[in-house]
């Protein structure tokens, strides 16, 4: 059932990035995945035009975390009218960097034999959470103290019905690691860490109170502009 759930969640997060009417009949939908450290953009391309499409290529604009295609878009056969094809594009994080708004925005250019088309999409920031993002406990305590209070952001996650252990397990599957758990006055406090591909660490305190469906998440980071994206990621992981 874990596998089926994974497939389902992939299906749910598939989005239409380029509608056919904006790209002379080429429709692109897709999703981003991270599996065992490999980031991929999984796409479905459909030809809704009346002529054959060939010569596909893809390029990203510079972006906040240096995402770039790590190989060509592998569509080796012409795409006939009404035909769809799946393509998985491996991504690297060593491309050119430029801060985007929102931070996780990606501008993409796709070309075929007809024209060049552009679209924007947003990737979940958890795609950039590395597998070795569990901070040493001693380092966590020192870093938490060291990061100024002005760099702390607090958010509410409403309507969440997991207990703290279930939440912790779910978050670990997107490389958010629980380092310590304490219970104070009936409230579970989870101390967590994650590390982005560019080496930025994010420290978190997640408060879960039995019987209260509203969690409080506090995020501390030396680059606090990532906090909003990280919060959105907590919400989507915990609610899906």
């Amino acid at each position: 059932s874990g596998w089926i759930n994974k497939q389902l969640s992939d299906v749910i997060s598939v989005q239409v990035w380029l509608p056919a009417m904006k790209a002379k009949g080429l429709e692109i939908s897709g999703t981003f995945v991270r599996r065992a450290g490999v980031i991929q953009m999984e796409m479905n391309l459909t030809n809704k035009a009346m002529s054959v499409m060939t010569d596909f290529a893809i390029q990203f604009n510079r972006n906040s975390f240096g995402l770039a295609s790590a190989g060509p878009l592998q569509i080796l056969t012409p795409l006939s009218p009404n035909q769809s094809i799946e393509a998985a594009l491996p991504l690297s994080t060593v491309g050119p960097v430029m801060k985007m708004e929102p931070l996780n925005n990606l501008q993409v250019a796709v070309k075929n034999n007809i024209d060049v088309f552009y679209f924007s999409c947003q990737y979940p920031i958890s795609m950039l959470f590395v597998e070795d993002g569990k901070m040493e406990r001693q380092v966590f305590l020192a870093t938490w103290k060291d990061i100024p209070n002005d760099n702390e952001s607090q958010f509410q996650i409403k309507d969440c019905h997991l207990n703290s252990d279930a939440a912790s397990n779910k978050l670990q599957s997107s490389n958010i690691f629980t380092i310590a758990k304490r219970t104070v006055e009936g409230q579970d406090m989870l101390y967590q860490s994650m590390k982005l591909t560019n080496g930025i660490w994010v420290l978190a305190e997640l408060r879960v109170q039995a019987g209260n469906p509203n969690y409080t998440i506090s995020l501390k980071c030396r680059a606090p502009e990532v906090s909003q994206c990280v919060f959105q990621n907590y919400e989507s992981v915990l609610k899906n």
Binding site: Q138, L141, W144, R182, V184, E185, Q187, M189, Y191, S218
Partner: peptide, 20 residues
């Protein structure tokens, strides 16, 4: 001893965040 100290430090952190 270090581990005990860290356990204690996390307890103090959680306590101080609940009752600042």
């Amino acid at each position: 001893e270090l581990e005990d100290g860290l356990d204690e430090a996390f307890s103090r952190l959680a306590e101080s965040r609940t009752n600042p």
